[in-house]
Amino acid sequence: MVDVQDSVKLAQNPHPRATPATAAVLRWRDDVAFDGPVVAFADFGGDSNAAAVRVDPADDARALVPHLARLRLIEVSFPKYRDGRGYSAARILREAGYTGELRAAGDVLVDQINFMRRVGFDSFAPAKPLNPDDVAAALARFPHVYQKAADAAAPVWALRHG
């Protein structure tokens, strides 16, 4: 179900930050991608009508919880892959019931994509393009998981006692 949009289409995306550095977005969603403006977290007031917001590592994703119903896209930025705060942000949003698009943007590497899928990301805007075959291989690599997360995978303890 990987839907790789091409960079030409992305160039029309008004989001000012992702466009120049982003080669392609990988999506695991069937709905139409949100095409409107993505506002910075600091500008996302409770009275804003924005349907998309960007969360940087230091932003408190939980502050978005009262507004999830009107959000269609939440973009979580990864300025450096080593900064793992975005993983918690994603899982918090999914645990709070967010079902819209959750995008990991920035320093997103193929070796992290499996973990990112597990915490709830369903689209990716890597700064450097990823080879879709490598992505597919990385996602298929591990046959089981040891713990619950934001995905549907049953941990091995559930399989053992299912």
């Binding site: 993983y87 899982r91 992290q112 973990f115 040891y146 713990q147 091995v156 303890w157």
Partner: peptide, 14 residues
């Protein structure tokens, strides 16, 4: 050990 192995949220801690 099992819970912490390949933990998706806690593999890039500070």
């Amino acid at each position: 050990r099992q819970w912490s192995s390949f933990h998706p949220e806690f593999s890039f801690l500070p």
